[in-house]
Amino acid sequence: MIKPMIKPLRLILGFAAALLTGAPAFAYTIYVTNEKGNSVTVIDSETWEVTGTYDVGQRPRGITISPDGKELYICTSDEDLVEVYDPVSMKMLHTLPSGPDPELFVLHPSGNPLYIANEDDNLVTVVDVKTHTVLAEIPVGVEPEGMAVSPDGLVVINTSETTNMAHFINAETFEIFQNVLVDNRPRFAEFTSDGSLLFVSAEIGGTVSVIDPSNGEILHKVSFEEPGIPPEALQPVGVRVTQDGKHIFVALGPANRVAVIDGESFEVIEYLLVGQRVWQMAFTPDEKYLITTNGNSNDVSVIDVAELEVILSIPVGEQPWGVVVSPE
């Protein structure tokens, strides 16, 4: 309803950003799930224009794309399915069984299988994306949510929000071999690109645990503090690490900030103001930009990774939740 007012502003900003960035960047396609809008917004990373909005199943949340860029996977939570789309035509190709209420998932680095957290049943469901069959259901702690796979593809991580653990699962045998107790409501897990560190955010605990995956030891706990923001509003959710491991970006939910953490000292070096209730984030593959979903302001923010600056916000659909960027 307020879109007509916002649109001209977006065009101006988009134009300014294109001027600012100057040097030709690769054009990627950005896909944003709108949890309440039941849609996916598609954005071009060169022009920062919304190129389309596509209806998908009910309550789309987690979103990921195959390494070859040919299949876009969307957790449609209220359909109890994973919907698979052609990322170019945005036509649905087929669905995958997911177990009830899928929220977040992670694709094996090889592109198969898909590991899905089923919050209702204390399970991680493993789905073969080629044969569309369930390979395994792995019992984990209460309310599983965060999912990650180690870069070598050998270890799957699941975080359980009421058990407050990161479960380490053997990616081949599907057996848990290690559990690490973290702070309250762990939402997200992310490895460094060399697999030497694992970051787990705890939304209610207000911390990010830095874990040595080889022995499950918590090496460091990052906490957050920003003047003028009530401590209980600093709620870490999404975590992304640069390829070189130098910067860790943490979305702080209702604090409307993304914290930037130094990869060596684990100190927060910057708080970037983004939109409201920021949860998930994704880098462009060249790592020039980080896109954040702001659920309560119905927009995404674009962060210039080198400058550590928010350069743009782009209106999307209602309550944006997840974001993924095409490989090329």
Partner: peptide, 10 residues
């Protein structure tokens, strides 16, 4: 049951 699920790991 919730406590017991967590307890299984400990």
């Amino acid at each position: 049951a919730d406590n017991a699920t967590t307890g299984t790991f400990l």
